[in-house]
Amino acid sequence: MNIKPLGDRVVIKRLEAEETTKSGIVLTGTAKERPQEAEVVAVGPGAIVDGKRIEMEVKVKDKVLFSKYAGTEVKFDGVEYVILKQDDILAIVE
């Protein structure tokens, strides 16, 4: 991939949405909710605050949960990514 985020930005790729509910109901394309879980594909160098670089808390291949309306969606080489600030990431899924 050739996207290199700047500052405290992170590039993520959404994980696939569930096709069926826990009770076995198959969801159509419009009924599926967009997942808030994603995999980190690129990480910026970190923000600079008061002349000091702040280290990034996430790394490539981490699975994360992020805010519902966070970031900017971009399409690169036919794949959809979201570029967002590290602050919009809520948790790392282990």
Rank of each mutant, 00 (worst) to 15 (best):
G24V: 04
V49Y: 08
G29N: 14
G44F: 02
L27P: 03
A38D: 01
G29M: 14
E16S: 13
E39F: 11
E55T: 09
D50S: 13
V41H: 02
M56A: 04
P35C: 11
Q36I: 10
A47Q: 07
E37A: 10
K52D: 10
E19M: 12
I48N: 04
G29K: 15
K52Q: 14
I25Q: 15
R53C: 03
I54V: 15
V26N: 07
A42S: 07
L15Y: 02
R14V: 00
G24Q: 05
I54T: 09
K32M: 07
G44E: 04
E39Y: 10
P35L: 08
L15K: 07
R53P: 04
G29C: 08
A38H: 04
G29F: 11
L15E: 04
V40F: 06
V43Q: 01
R14Y: 05
G24N: 05
R34H: 09
E39H: 08
A47E: 08
R53I: 02
V49P: 02
I54C: 06
I25D: 13
G29L: 12
E19Y: 09
A31E: 15
G44M: 03
T30F: 14
K52P: 00
I54R: 12
T30E: 15
K22I: 10
V49C: 03
A17C: 07
K52A: 10
T21H: 01
E33T: 12
I54Y: 07
P45S: 07
E57D: 13
A47N: 06
E33H: 10
M56F: 06
D50Y: 10
V26R: 12
A47G: 00
D50W: 08
R34K: 13
R14A: 06
P35V: 07
K52Y: 07
A47T: 05
V41N: 00
T21D: 06
A17I: 00
E18C: 10
R53S: 07
G24C: 03
R14E: 02
R53W: 00
S23L: 11
G29Q: 15
G51A: 01
G29A: 14
E37C: 08
P35E: 09
E37K: 13
